[in-house]
Design a binder for these strands. Structure first.
Length: 473
RNA sequence: GGUCCCGUCGUCCAGAGGCCUAGGACGCCGGCCUUUCAAGCCGGAAACGCCGGUUCGAAUCCGGUCGGGACUGCCA
């Protein structure tokens, strides 16, 4: 039987990186086995689900490079892939289960159920021991599944191994709400049957719900899928990854300038590894090697520092033209205007040097704006640290002179002119070049000096040297 | 409280009884290179939670213990 896996996000928020990783593993497994990856939309919570979030989530999947073979927006042989389209259908199934004796109506007030829960807790028992079929039958209210009391509910989890839950600890859970909409348990289980899902790979938070799904599946006369419960993601402080840790939505990372390939690689490596040595790997390599069996059991901490490093690796490995194209909007947004054709050429020429120094795309823009924009007076700490030293004015004047006389304005000419300076002035290279760097680029941190000067052009370079000299006087 | 899950460097991953004086990666520290910052190169500190047991031999198996986590909703 060919593998069919699915991801069923709820469009009640942006795609959380944890959900993204679960999707990633499903996708990897489908691609590895030549199976089918399906994306459904789990929008039974009509109140909180929105089309905007749905679009966002699907865009995030696509950004990560997770394409799906069946499901929302692409269709497939199994009808709709949006649960809100099948509300009545789920309801009819719930009623059928009542007719067959597998489920029952319950209109007990919440206080009464609360009382049962308290009683269970007091006796150190699971609420399942008391949340059971009431003595008097109703014909309205919610519909609960009647969970058989006898024996254990057992299954073999691909990542956890053999699991066993006492049936007595599984309460008669609600499958249909009093407003006629299905709960997650019903909709999800029914869909997994209808869409012939073979492997359910999902977050470990659903492990305790799995016995419910198995009992329901059996009541529906179907065979349960293979389950694989994936470890959860945490922040580096060991707490569940949440807004407190900063970015948690895939979109956040996309906007912060992370590359999808890096994100994919990082997420894939969080709970799984290609082998014992390799950290950086392509999608194809991951697809070739991936198996759910190899997924780690331990929860993983999401470490942004490592992601940043990895992103830098991908940035450096990028095609230089592609890099220039990607950074262009960043430069333009910090300039507040579009680059001219000539400016873009200038930028492209120096871009490879910037590329080496970039981890996140927005950093790249900051490194080159000096080429296109005048900067204000020098009065920051790096200026004070370097420029207030003795002899700086002479150094700048000498540089001005050496460059002013230059015939060809190219890197070799600039380099040989400036290289002569330290000896001429009787100072070290660093001492000579740092003031020039600040005068010309406005910062003590910049791309390599000669290349920067070449890109800046004769006129602006000389202007800036003069301006700095005057300011020192 | 109850049910269940997890426990190897700060972090991610490798390790499925001897190949482990525990390996790779990020981060950290030191050095080299160097006009800055990066990158690169070299080196370093850093872990099998604890206690028992099984075994000739345990990070690997078993038990207990401690610690962390999830679930316990007409949310998913």
């Amino acid at each position: 039987m060919s593998v069919r896996v699915r991801m069923a996000p709820s469009p009640t928020g942006y795609l959380h990186v944890g959900t993204g990783r679960a999707a990633l593993y499903n996708w990897l497994y489908a691609r590895h086995t030549g199976g089918t990856f399906i994306v459904r939309i789990d929008d039974t919570d009509l109140e909180r689900s929105t089309k905007e979030f749905e679009d966002e989530i699907l865009a995030s999947f696509r950004w990560l490079g997770l394409d799906w073979d069946e499901g929302v927006e692409v269709g497939g042989p199994h009808g709709t892939y949006r649960q809100s389209d099948r509300i009545d259908y789920y309801a009819s199934i719930a009623h059928r289960l009542v007719d067959e004796g597998h489920a029952y109506f319950d209109n007990r007030p919440t206080e009464e159920l609360e009382e049962l829960r308290r009683k269970a807790q007091k006796e150190g028992k699971h609420p399942g021991h008391y949340i059971r079929r009431p003595s008097t039958e109703a014909s309205e209210g919610v519909i609960r599944l009647s969970v058989p009391q006898d024996g254990p509910v057992e299954f073999s989890d691909v990542v956890r191994g053999d699991m066993s839950f006492a049936a007595a600890d599984v309460d008669d859970f609600i499958i249909l709400r009093s407003n006629g909409t299905p709960t997650y348990h019903l909709a999800s289980t029914v869909d997994d049957i209808d869409y012939e899902i073979t492997h359910v790979a999902r977050g470990e938070d659903l492990l305790p719900s799995t016995p419910k799904h198995i009992v329901l599946t059996k009541a529906l006369g179907a065979e349960e899928p293979t389950y694989a419960h994936l470890p959860l993601l945490f922040g580096t402080d060991g707490k569940k990854l949440s807004k407190r840790h900063g970015a948690t939505a895939v979109t956040d990372f996309r906007e912060a300038g992370y590359l999808p390939d890096a994100m994919f690689n990082y997420l894939a490596n969080l709970g799984w590894s290609l082998d014992s040595e390799t950290t950086i790997f392509t999608r194809d390599k991951a697809v070739a090697a991936f198996d759910l069996t190899d997924v780690s059991k331990n929860p993983a901490a999401f470490d942004v520092a490592k992601l940043d490093w990895m992103n830098g690796e991908y940035v450096r490995a990028m095609d230089p033209e592609r890099f220039a194209d990607l950074v262009r909007p960043q430069v333009e947004s910090s300039l507040g205007r579009a680059l001219t054709r000539g400016e873009f050429d200038t930028f492209s020429a120096i871009a490879p040097l910037v590329q080496e120094r970039t981890r996140l795309l927005p950093e790249a823009g900051d490194q080159v704006v000096f080429l296109f924009e005048e900067f204000e007076a020098y009065d920051d700490t790096s200026w004070n640290k370097v420029m207030t030293k003795d002899g700086v004015a002479e150094t700048l004047a000498a540089a001005n002179e050496a460059l002013g006389d230059l015939g060809d304005w190219d890197i070799p000419a600039i380099e040989s002119a400036l290289r002569a300076l330290p000896e001429l002035l009787g100072i070290g290279a660093g001492k000579a070049f740092q003031p020039i760097r600040i005068a010309v680029t406005g910062s003590s941190v910049s791309p390599p000096l000669f290349e920067s000067i070449a890109a800046l052009g004769r006129e602006r370079t000389l202007q800036r040297l003069e301006r700095a000299t005057n300011q020192l006087a």
